[in-house]
Design a protein around this nucleic acid. Structure first.
Lengths: 219, 219
DNA sequence: CCTACCGATCGGTAGG
DNA sequence: CCTACCGATCGGTAGG
């Protein structure tokens, strides 16, 4: 390397210096989560992943024992990153309207930032798992369902505190908020990316403004 | 068969009576579109499809010449069914607000009915094609983009006719309408199915009511 | 539209 | 964590 090269904390030239098995494990599942957010959980082939991480197939495989376990570990790694990126911060906001706003703001930020290259991991991977059954599908859908229940409950709290109009249906508002935020995930691989992230933000503000004032069309 | 069996227009017991190549072609691409709406375009393996249609792999393959051509033909078959189910009826409505309402009503009906078992074909398959390039991805995304432009243009016409408030941003409203309708596709394989179809319908009515009256939060 | 086959890649195993 | 290998399945071809 030339002396003018910027100091690098990266592994030295002779391959990578795996300090221990845990670091390797984390690098595998996080790389897998990145790939899956763009290509789906089924596109995760052990051979491709091993090549990308400069390991042998069986070396990588030994960490998991089956492809299903690799996929489960990938979903779990994604869940941890999602919780750290969205929930840990948003749930510090006081219950009620402030927390709804924080959950939406952090969700949009999480989709906008390259936290996962494909947008929201759970939105991007749901299509690939819906038709099968088993623990991988359950893990993906459980995370989506969890966030929806959390948002619905938070909306209910805001109603109880009279911060939202009494006519608001928490399940309906949660559906709409999640729909307009999730839609932005598909634009992360698009030329419409910036536009649609703004569309999602405006849609959330519009929905929350309307809910505060109680101007809702009756079903 | 017992004499009390109901009269059946189905093929006789000795295999299926392929009357000609065209009917076989249609049955292949329509079955492929049904499968792809649930499992994605990559789950369409030639072997599985051939087995399901009781053909040999190479007999099916001969209709297309490559997997990519099979996928393109599948998308085209889905496009025709989408146009017949949604656009042909909705575009007969007079331009402006009536046409917006018809487009949304037919879209929701198309998602709700088992037109495709996986909901909207183009929503369900977009995840599987976003990370690759080529004609299959282009075909899927072109259909999504076409409907969005059509809806945006129709909203603009309604504005010009003073049927919608002048403050309405057509691209923003099109984004929100499509987002709340598309989200219902994921519930078609869910126990939340009926609830979310109703949520989508209420969301559309609420957005359109608000747009008529011009009560929009400023960005 | 068929049988019979091809090389490549898949998930997974043996043995170290 | 590795090399070397397995049967099954993939997309695709030859020849009819």
């Amino acid at each position: 390397m030339s002396p003018s090269a910027r100091p690098s904390p990266a592994p030295s030239a002779s391959r990578r210096r795996r300090s221990d098995g845990l670091r390797t494990y984390d690098s595998i599942v996080n790389a897998a989560a990145d790939i899956a957010s763009l290509e789906g959980l089924d596109a995760l082939t052990i051979g491709t992943l091993a090549e990308r991480l400069e390991m042998s197939k069986s070396g990588l495989f030994a960490h998991f024992g089956s492809k299903e376990e690799l996929q489960l570990a990938t979903v779990e790694a994604a869940r941890k990153r999602y919780v750290a990126a969205v929930l840990d911060t948003a749930m510090k906001a006081p219950a009620g309207m402030a927390r709804i706003e924080a959950l939406c703001a952090m969700t949009l930020d999480y989709v906008a930032r390259p936290e996962f290259p494909g947008g929201c991991f759970f939105v991007a991977t749901q299509a690939g798992v819906r038709s099968r059954d088993g623990s991988v599908r359950d893990a993906v859908t459980a995370n989506k369902a969890y966030f929806r229940r959390l948002l619905r409950r938070t909306i209910q709290e805001a109603k109880t505190r009279r911060e939202l109009a009494a006519a608001i249906d928490p399940d309906q508002l949660a559906y709409e908020l999640i729909a307009v935020m999730d839609a932005a995930t598909w634009s992360t691989t698009d030329e419409r990316r910036q536009d649609d992230l703004q569309h999602a933000g405006r849609a959330v503000r519009s929905l929350l403004d309307r809910a505060r004032k109680g101007k809702r069309a009756t079903p």
